[in-house]
Design a protein around this nucleic acid. Structure first.
Length: 884
RNA sequence: GGGAGCAUAGCUCAGCUGGUUCAGAGCAUCUGCCUUACAAGCAGAGGGUCACAGGUUCGAAUCCUGUUGCUCCCA
């Protein structure tokens, strides 16, 4: 056997074996299902550390469930990610010198699909390297034909139910890409940008002074519909209700009072331009003001601005122009430079324009109620639970959801418009035409024009838990209910766990819950495990632009998939950010090597049919108990979704308890054989440990499992059963704990006195009739003792220590350093006296004795007695040292 | 501006209904060791006023109030 474990061939071998045997596939049967749906990564994505963490956790859960005898089904897939993908395709085309607008919709989509076919599957392929046991035959894409149909049908259904409506809304508009942007796609430079505040005088009817407003955007004044001041502002109070005139075009607009206006900011007087600012829009709504939209989609001024010289002029050129014009007219009172935050498009970096446009909305309030309750009363559990607060806050203040996007890549909104402006919502153009003909028999197919917009990505992924099982095929549009569940849907829904990032708790998780209750009348999943964000060592979020994210595949190359999986899990409690450090993967890799070497040790032993010594028997009994103990702990931790702690306890069980203690205890002397019984037990333990570890480190556990004994080649540890705990012998564990303490004392003695392990020592004890005597063979073996004997007479030159109520003596050679011994024992006594004092104080406190629980008081009494005894024993030893 | 969360060893974090799981784990550090499975290792050690200030209590890392510092979400 190789001295170090070589994972590369092993990992490839087993992944292929698992795949070719179809061990990942799941079909409904009589077993209980255990289902996880992957949060579909964007097709544009390549695997990053966040995916690594997220999918490792899912794989751990699914493999554990499979071993528990569940019918485990992990459904993989990808999200079409409308904005992100479209941006990628546009950029790719641009490099080839092709403009999206020149292509037209059909042509562009062809390119987009090509792109998707080529790159869309990369991330899933990468997941295989990680060992992900997804049922790849179920791989889904949110724009698969059946999925597309589902999204459209749900749109029609919600429209029929009156939950979808069209409305005006201020959106973030990218004038270059000519598309709406979500808030997330608008980037603000933290430091701010330099801008100019212009103070402009407006004439006011019947007031010779006029009024001075402040604005950063003078090119929008032609869209003004009012001026606003704070009603409490003494300077302007008298002007409220009067009429001002918009410069150059002399539109008559009212001066209104609105508390929104900040008296301190600018001149304290605000021009209200509802079409071009969110706050202005809201003021306009409050005061029933009209909306005058002077900007076209490409950012140029249009005829609404009433000044022909500005038609078709870009907004920034228009700004310069109007400033000049105002200057000439003598109404520009002041120009002042200041710093402000300007929103820019993430994609094109152009200044984002607030723009009023007609959009589609889902009204959320009514049908999100059930989703709120479900989390409130723990029908759906969030892990960690602290996210409940966040969830509640959002759900209680839920706003209507704008679902239309001015893009081509995505699910096109199924609304058809007639020439007269009327509209019909239907799944297909044929249905739309049929409906249209009822209203107007003369209408023809060519007369119908489909809405140009597509749906928000989340408006497809929120259907994921139902759509991956084809649930919407049977959505009856007459009743708005799923008429019949497919076999898969009936079996796998609700799924068990969703593992995802907290930042999409609302975008995705909450909406899946809403859709789940709306269409299935049931939750989409029972538990939600929220992972943290993977950050670098300095706490910065890992990102491409910072270049601080390691390439996961290179990491796997370097540390093996098992090593990286362990590394990801070692320090990532649910919901806490993970400060990723490559050394964690190293730790994981070292662990695989440790396991490998434990196998090498066992494999190197010759077997004898003679019976083993007593020490082996007690070692076996002890480890069996310890194993059962950790197993119950682990099961408990799994139930609480404390995955990292589960791994850590198994890690310690294998490294410390099994390798450092157990194997050392039973290890035969060099060249000696081991008895068959002990070897068989040891192999059995090793087998159990591998099964315990398998969900975390699937590859090496499979390899070792096969090498341990003659397994049937067809078997896989993937399908082996999760270990069952035996009864834990607590008494034995505590006896063993004492034995360990003694061993450590003796090792310590060797260390401080520089006595090599090879040199045999003798140990004397004041009390030989303890339960501990069972462990003597082990203590002798691990400490290389010649004997452990009862002390009959005084041992003059001895190193002494106290464990429990017993004194132990190691006779020392003549060059004993009395001084040092004296000091060591004295130090011990001082510590114990301090301890005793605090315990005594407590017991002397009448409040404590009368009010504390009885067990607590008893415990303190015992502590006191123990401490007193130990002090007495050490004092005795001091005296004997002195008499020396 | 509104909301939520966090602060414990050098780092990452456990610490449940206040009391032997009470100050703990892993990593890192230091000191010995190439001891026949493993130096990707073994054996041992050191290290914390539990952010600060009050309060409740016989008893507070834990409960309450305030202060400071950080993080996230929404606007």
């Amino acid at each position: 056997m190789e001295k170090t474990y070589n994972p590369h061939t092993v990992e490839d071998k087993w992944y292929h074996t698992w795949m070719s045997k179809g061990l990942f596939t799941s079909k409904p049967d009589e077993r209980d299902p255990y289902t996880i749906l992957i949060p579909p990564p964007n097709v544009t994505g390549v695997l990053h550390m966040g995916h690594m963490l997220n999918n490792t956790i899912q794989d751990v859960l699914i493999r554990k469930a499979r071993m528990n005898g569940k019918n485990a089904c992990w459904v993989p897939g990808t999200d079409h990610a409308s904005i992100a993908t479209e941006a990628k395709v546009v950029a790719m085309l641009r490099e080839q010198g092709i403009k999206k607008s020149d292509l037209g919709r059909e042509e562009f989509l062809k390119y987009a699909w090509e792109w998707k076919e080529k790159y869309g599957g990369i991330i899933l392929e990468q997941l295989k390297k990680l060992g992900a046991s997804c049922d790849w035959e179920r791989t889904q894409f949110t724009m698969d034909e059946h999925y597309y149909r589902a999204v459209i049908r749900v749109f029609v259904d919600l429209y029929n139910k009156g939950l979808i409506y069209r409305g005006m809304r201020m959106i973030n508009w990218d004038c270059e890409a000519k598309t709406a942007l979500s808030n997330e796609e608008v980037i603000y430079n933290e430091a701010g940008e330099s801008s100019i505040m212009y103070s402009v005088r407006y004439e006011v009817e019947n007031d010779k002074n006029g009024i001075i407003i402040a604005t950063q955007r003078p090119e929008t004044i032609m869209g003004d519909v009012a001026l606003a001041v704070n009603p409490m502002d003494e300077r302007y109070k008298h002007l409220i209700g009067k009429i001002a005139l918009v410069p150059f075009i002399n539109r008559r607009i009212p001066i209104i009072g609105d508390a929104y206006v900040d008296k301190e900011f600018g001149t304290g007087c605000l021009k209200v331009t509802p079409a071009h600012d969110v706050n202005d829009y809201e003021i306009g709504q409050r005061h029933q003001l009209p909306v005058i939209d002077t900007l076209s989609a490409d950012g140029t001024l249009n005829e609404k601005c009433e000044l022909p010289e500005f038609y078709g002029i870009d907004r920034f050129a228009a700004r310069k122009l109007i400033v000049k014009k105002m200057h000439e007219a003598g109404i520009l009172v002041e120009e002042k430079t200041f710093t402000t935050k300007i929103g820019r498009s993430e994609r094109t970096n152009t200044v984002v324009e607030p723009r009023l446009s007609e959009q589609w909305f889902i009204s959320m309030k009514a049908f999100s109620q059930r989703a709120l309750e479900a989390v409130e009363n723990n029908e759906i559990k969030l892990h960690p639970a602290k996210f409940k607060n966040t969830y509640r806050h959002w759900m209680e203040n839920v706003k209507d959801w704008c679902i239309s996007r001015q893009l081509w890549w995505g699910h096109r909104i199924p609304a058809w418009y007639f020439p007269n402006g009327e509209m019909i919502v239907a799944e297909t153009i044929d249905e739309a035409l049929a409906l249209a003909k009822k209203k107007n028999p003369d209408i023809k197919r060519e007369d119908l024009r489909q809405d140009d917009d597509v749906l928000d990505t989340w408006a497809s992924s929120w259907l994921w838990p139902v759509a991956v099982f084809d649930g919407f095929e049977n959505l009856d549009l007459k009743t708005g209910k799923i008429a019949k569940k497919t076999q898969d849907l009936a079996y796998y829904y609700p799924t068990n766990v969703l593992v995802t990032a907290p930042e999409i708790l609302f975008f995705w998780v909450a909406r899946m819950i809403i859709a789940g209750y709306e269409y299935m009348g049931d939750m989409p999943f029972k538990d939600v495990y929220l992972t943290g964000i993977v950050r670098d060592k300095q706490g910065r979020k890992m990102s491409k632009s910072l270049g601080n994210s390691p390439d996961p595949l290179l990491l796997i190359e370097k540390y093996s998939a098992d090593g990286v999986r362990a590394g990801m899990l070692f320090s990532s409690p649910a919901g806490n950010d993970l400060l990723f450090d490559e050394s964690l993967c190293e730790q994981g890799r070292n662990f695989t090597n440790k396991i490998w070497n434990a196998l090498r040790l066992i494999k190197g032993w010759e077997v004898t049919n003679q019976t083993g010594d007593k020490g082996n028997q007690i070692a076996i009994e002890w480890f069996d108990s310890r194993l059962s103990q950790v197993l119950s702990e682990t099961n408990d931790l799994f139930e609480k979704f404390r995955i990292n702690e589960a791994l850590m306890s198994i890690y310690k069980l294998i490294w410390d308890d099994f390798c450092s203690w157990y194997l050392e205890m039973i290890k035969p002397a060099f060249g000696q054989p081991i008895d068959r019984e002990t070897l068989n037990q040891t192999i059995h333990f090793f087998d159990t440990l591998m099964r315990l570890l398998h969900p975390f480190m699937p590859f090496i556990t499979e390899e070792i499992w096969h090498l341990l004994d003659d397994k049937n080649k067809e078997d896989s540890i993937m399908l082996a059963s999760w270990p069952k705990a035996n009864t834990v012998n607590n008494e034995l564990l505590s006896i063993y704990g004492a034995a360990q303490a003694i061993i450590i004392q003796i090792r310590n003695y060797r260390k401080t006195k520089n006595i090599p392990q090879k040199e045999m020592l003798a140990l004397y004890t004041s009390n030989q009739n303890t339960d501990l005597s069972e462990c003597y063979p082990i203590i002798m073996k691990l400490c290389n003792l010649s004997a452990i004997e009862g002390k009959t007479n005084n041992i003059p030159n001895a190193y002494v220590f106290v464990e429990g109520e017993t004194e132990y003596y190691i006779p020392m050679s003549n060059d004993i350093d009395l001084e040092a011994e004296y000091e060591r024992i004295n130090k011990e006594i001082v510590y114990l006296e301090g301890f005793l004092k605090s315990v005594t104080n407590k017991l002397n406190n009448p409040g404590f004795v009368s009010k504390a629980k009885l067990e607590i008081v008893e415990m303190e009494n015992k502590k006191k007695a123990d401490a007193e005894l130990q002090i007495a024993l050490l004092r005795k030893q001091l005296i004997s040292l002195q008499s020396n």
